[in-house]
Amino acid sequence: MAIKVLVVDDSSFFRRRVSEIINADPSLEVVDTAKNGREAIDMVARLKPDVVTMDIEMPIMDGITAVREIMAKNPTPVLMFSSLTHEGAKATLDALEAGALDFIPKKFEDIARDREEAVSLLQQRVKAIARRRVSARRSVSAPAPSTPVRPSAATRPAVKASPTTSAPQPKERATARFKPSGKRYKLVAIGTSTGGPVALQTILTQIPAGFSKPILLVQHMPATFTAAFAQRLNSLSRINVKQAEDGDELRPGWAYLAPGGKQMLVEGRGSYGRLRVIDGNDKVNYKPCVDITFASLAKSHQSNVLAMILTGMGADGRDGSRLLKEQGSTIWAQDEASCVVYGMPQAVASAGLASEQLPLDRFCEAIVAEIGNG
């Protein structure tokens, strides 16, 4: 049976273009189109599509509001179309937080070398999220910062002040639920793709202030998105989060997000290491690439890395995880049930590289328990 798709966009040209691409795959079928978010909500209730493709800016009701209502009333996988601008990045992140599972640029040429590749990519994304059944959306919450004005990343102290809202510290619960190995580490590294923005937000907003290790984040994301994403994570988290820059010296209690369109490498200089951010080879499929960052860690930090692969399409991270595993580092993977797309974690687990397969909501407590105070 074909996957049923509802296409939502205020442009008749774009609705037609997307519908033609989707219908070109015999396993996909566009069941109807909508011109705005209000129509989309009504059609989702009536037609029960397997996937909705959704524009952000539309008259009558925008895509973010529509996603929020769809997730509350008739939860359905949603693929957002986004502009590759800073404002588009913020709106797309809002849509993902509202419950959308993935996004794709409206200008296909921004992510594909030719029309054939663009067509294939859209079809693959629709099929990937169609396999994910979603439930009523619960927003990712996080404590508000203790002061209304935040200092810049350059001047902010290494450890943030504790938030004014009281929240249970993950460490207090972790020891009873997760048995740490006793191994010692220098840093934590996380790689992810589809579904990753919400997954990373879920984990990082629970990491306690004063966390004793640096955290490296590699998220498949366009260049115009990563700065906005890092800012969002920083505003919600107790630890400091920034977009990685060439020459950054890794510090405990900081998370470094690999810039879109670049490759992030780690050198072993300094107490915890130093970052190199480079353009990299244009033949590499992903910029940033988890394999490349993890491979550099295998060289610079050998056995001292706690690495994990979260939700995402494909197999990026498997080869880098293998190199880390060979050096004695620890690899974890997200379990299938909590993934938006069980591609990257499955590749790692199937290769026998993951010592733990955890649901998303257990990662923070497991990280804090495993790292301990050392």
Rank of each mutant, 00 (worst) to 15 (best):
Q263T: 03
R276I: 04
G261M: 06
I239Q: 12
P288L: 00
Q263K: 06
V284C: 00
L310G: 07
R269T: 11
A298M: 05
S271A: 14
L324I: 13
R238E: 15
Q263G: 02
M221Q: 11
R274T: 02
V277H: 06
Y286R: 00
C289I: 13
G273M: 00
D319Y: 01
V284Q: 07
I278L: 06
N234Q: 08
A223V: 08
R322Y: 12
G253V: 11
D316Y: 13
K262V: 00
P222N: 12
L250Q: 03
L257D: 01
E245A: 14
T226M: 06
T224F: 01
D282I: 08
R232L: 03
A230C: 05
A307E: 08
I239Y: 12
D279A: 07
Y272H: 12
M264K: 00
D291M: 05
V284H: 08
V241R: 14
N234L: 03
G320N: 09
D248S: 08
R238C: 12
T226N: 13
K283L: 09
L250K: 01
R322W: 00
D316G: 01
A244G: 07
P288M: 12
V266Y: 07
N281R: 10
I309D: 05
D279W: 09
C289F: 04
D291N: 10
N285D: 10
V277I: 15
T226V: 04
M313D: 04
N234E: 01
L323A: 14
L265D: 09
I278Q: 04
L257Y: 05
G247H: 07
A295E: 15
I292Q: 05
T224S: 13
D282C: 07
I309M: 12
S237R: 12
A244M: 03
A244W: 06
S235K: 13
L257V: 15
G261I: 05
Y286F: 13
L310M: 03
C289H: 01
D291L: 02
A230P: 07
G280Q: 02
V284T: 11
L233R: 14
R269Y: 03
L297S: 06
L275R: 04
M313G: 06
G280N: 05
Q302S: 14
K325S: 15
V277S: 04
D246S: 15
I309Y: 00
D319A: 01
R318Y: 01
T293Y: 06
L323S: 10
N234C: 04
S296N: 00
